[in-house]
């Protein structure tokens, strides 16, 4: 679940700590383009935590790791990286504007886990919370990954993930356009 979003929001926070964020904002290159590169790299790098978790489950806790369709699983992983990177980019925009955005996004971690059905099916939640989860790309990315692993439905979930990712990307581009606000 942390693949993408968490490392992405961490990258701009690190830029702020190092004092390089004002230069990034002032540079003629679009901030979204700069942050996108960091986010994709961070998301791809953090795939190792996903692989490590699967390996730990298999080796230490005897959890069977069986994938019904390897090709679909890889595709779902790719879509997940892109969608999570977009979500991370959206959070990055908050990081540029607000010094303490990191703490507030940390606060959202458990609710997002719940409404996205990370460990407990979101269908067990109250209908309102379940509806919130359907608006978030991680929910569909997780469903697509599970579908690819168990032989269940995958394509509709991937389509939903991409469909939600596009407006997220648009919001990111728009927010990076209004970067005249001085960073802290």
């Amino acid at each position: 679940m942390d693949v993408g979003a968490v490392p992405c929001r961490g990258t701009l926070n690190w830029e702020r700590r190092q004092g390089t964020l004002p230069f990034l904002v002032a540079a003629p290159a679009p901030l979204a383009a700069v942050a996108a590169g960091s986010c994709v790299a961070a998301a791809a790098l953090s795939l190792y935590s996903m692989a490590g978790s699967l390996a730990l489950g298999a080796l230490a806790f005897d959890v069977p790791v069986e994938v019904d369709s390897v090709a679909l699983f890889l595709l779902a992983t790719l879509v997940m990286i892109v969608s999570m990177s977009l979500l991370g980019l959206l959070l990055c925009a908050a990081f540029v504007l607000y010094r303490q955005a990191g703490m507030f996004t940390n606060m959202l971690e458990y609710p997002v886990w719940m409404v996205c059905g990370l460990l407990v099916p979101a269908s067990t939640l109250a209908p309102g919370f379940n509806a919130i989860g359907t608006l978030l790309t991680p929910r569909w990315a997780l469903d697509a990954l599970r579908g690819a692993a168990t032989g269940g439905s995958t394509w509709p979930e991937l389509a939903a993930c991409c469909g939600l990712g596009l407006p997220t990307g648009s919001v990111v581009c728009c927010s990076s356009g209004s970067r005249n606000t001085a960073p802290g």
Binding site: M103, F104, N106, M107, Y110, P111, M114, L119, V120, L125
Partner: peptide, 20 residues
């Protein structure tokens, strides 16, 4: 956010997991 909200959300998450 850190002291009052996050611990409560953490508790709700694990309670939901435990109940399920």
């Amino acid at each position: 956010s850190v002291m009052l909200v996050t611990p409560v959300l953490q508790m709700l998450f694990f309670a939901q997991l435990g109940r399920y």
